[in-house]
Structure formats: structure tokens, C-alpha cells
Write a protein that binds this DNA or RNA. Structure first.
Lengths: 152, 152
DNA sequence: TGAAATCTGTTACCAAGGTAAACTGTTATT
DNA sequence: AATAACAGTTTACCTTGGTAACAGATTTCA
């Protein structure tokens, strides 16, 4: 019997940036689910609603590209939001393929009050960081997205 | 017609820290899947293998607590790792309820060479940051986990 | 012009990841 | 001894996503 033949040269789980990103993401997502659940929304539904508020008449394909998901996955989400009366599919005169997504007044109201609650909760979660660290986190995450995300 | 009655006072999607965490986490996870796929492992299987290497004879309950998942979810993962010959359930003399999880030699080898590749890939992903930002990211993520994670 | 390629939205199917509740056997409490 | 608590497991379920194939509309281009 020799001792341990394998040297533990690298990366334990808690040292992996990817794993820590996951765990911190879970912290944020847990509370997000609570807030959105009160409006009957899932995180993905909120992200779609948010983007249509921000950019009315956006097409589903464009939305899928922005969210980094498949077009097919968007159908059910939009169906749900439409049945809740939060947005509408509107035909576009020039191109009969596309459906422009536009939030209803109710949709904008729900989005606004939900956005406020989400922002407040993020403020709470980030309050354990200094202002400098908060800004650094936002800047660093943005840079990692810019440098590594595949843009369609 | 009045103008837009809703003021866009807060949080567009790309301004939410939670959403940016998700997107950055996805960047890290995509490549992780590639690397682990070559060994026939899923991310969760790797995390279990890694923790058993780091802490041999850990129980399944303890492992579930450390990973923040349900005990029931661990069964299939351990089944898979056991059938791959990477770890073993070993009965514990004192307590016939628990199954101590211990990596096999093969398990330690697979873990070691995989850990090296994962570390190399994280290095690549983080190379777009300054050394200072890299350290800040790691420190900030750790602090958010420490302050907000429910410890069982 | 007409054929081929491309694009949009849709459907049906499927796999991964996770949770919750109920069950067995074991150990601890009182 | 009776009861509670615990470890692991099974089962059923749900959510999130992805893939492939499709129809209709539009664009490209030979």
C-alpha cells in the first residue's frame, strides 16, 4: 500500500467559480420565484413580459434570440401570458409570418409593480456588499457576458 | 390619449443582477457539460464525485445538505456513479442506516483529470478579467453565499 | 418567372433536474 | 416498550429546456 497516489492539485467544488455562480444564482432565483408566484408568473414569463414592455412589437424570434432560448420554447410562455391578459399577439401588415408582441395595459401594470418588488429584493440581497463591490459585481458579470456570450 | 402612464422606474431585464448571474452561469455550465460529457458525467454527478473525493466516507444525507438538494435526488446520481465504477456505497459498522460514499481508485483518477480540465477552462473564461477583478468576483460570490445561504 | 432556400410560428415528443410524499429499516428518546 | 427521529429509497409529478418536423409566408436567385 502506497499512500494516496492522486494529488489533489486543483479545484475542489467550492473553489470552482462556475459552482459558486450556480449557488448564488439559486439564492437570487429562490426569492424571485416567491415574488413572481404572487402574480402567477414564472421567471421565464416575467423575462418575456419585461422585454415586451421594454421593446413593444418585438417578434417572437427576436425575443428568443435575446433570451438565448429556442423559438419553440417561447410559444407556451406567450400562450400563458396571453391567457393572463398581460400581452397580445398582433399581426404585422407587412409580413404575415410574424406576430408582434405587445403588452396590454394590465401587463405593463403587473410588470411595473413586480419590477419594483424585484429591485427591492435585489437591493436587500446586495446590501451585504459595499457599494464598490456591488458595482464591481455588476461590471464583472456584464464583461463576462459581453466577452463570452454568443450573439445571434 | 395621454402618453405612457407607466413610468419605467426600475429594473429592465439586463439590469437585474439575478438575470446576469443566470446568463453568466450558463456560459460556465455550457463548457462544463462538454468537458464532463467526455467522461459520461453530468454536472451533478461530478459535484457528487468531487465531494466524495474531498471528504471520503461522507453520508448521502450530509452530501445532499452540502449540495443543497434533496436526499431523494441523490439516489439516482449515486446509482449512476456506482454503475460507472467511480464510487461505492460502503456500510458503516456502527450505524446500519447510513451508506458511506467512497470513491474508487478509478473515481479519483477520473475526478483528478476532469478537475484539471475544468480548472483550465475556468482560467480561459476568466482570462478576460484583470487579476483584481478575478479575485473580487470570487470574494463577492463567496460573501453572498455566506450571508444568504441556508445552512442545514 | 419559377424553383429553391429561408424564415416565423407551431406542434409533438423527449430528457434532465428537481421536489414532495409515502415506505422500510434502524437508531434514539423517554 | 412505545414513540419519535433518521437514512436511504421508491414513486409520482412538475418544470424547464431542447430537438425534429411541419405549414405558410417571404426572399433569393438562376
Amino acid at each position: 500500500m502506497s499512500g494516496s497516489p492522486i494529488t489533489e492539485s486543483s479545484a475542489e467544488l467550492d473553489d470552482l467559480v462556475g459552482y459558486n455562480l450556480k449557488r448564488v444564482y439559486m439564492i437570487f432565483q429562490d426569492k424571485l420565484r416567491d415574488i413572481l408566484g404572487q402574480e402567477g408568473l414564472a421567471p421565464r414569463s416575467y423575462s418575456v413580459l419585461s422585454l415586451t414592455v421594454q421593446q413593444p412589437s418585438v417578434t417572437q424570434s427576436e425575443l428568443a434570440r435575446r433570451l438565448g432560448i429556442e423559438r419553440s420554447g417561447l410559444v407556451a410562455i406567450v400562450d400563458g401570458l396571453e391567457s393572463l391578459g398581460l400581452l397580445e399577439r398582433v399581426g404585422v401588415p407587412g409580413d404575415r409570418r410574424v406576430q408582434a408582441l405587445t403588452p396590454t395595459l394590465t401587463g405593463r401594470e403587473v410588470h411595473e409593480r413586480t419590477a419594483v418588488r424585484i429591485a427591492r429584493d435585489e437591493e436587500r440581497l446586495l446590501s451585504v456588499l459595499s457599494g464598490q463591490d456591488r458595482r464591481a459585481l455588476i461590471r464583472i458579470l456584464g464583461r463576462l457576458r459581453d466577452m463570452h456570450e454568443v450573439r445571434g
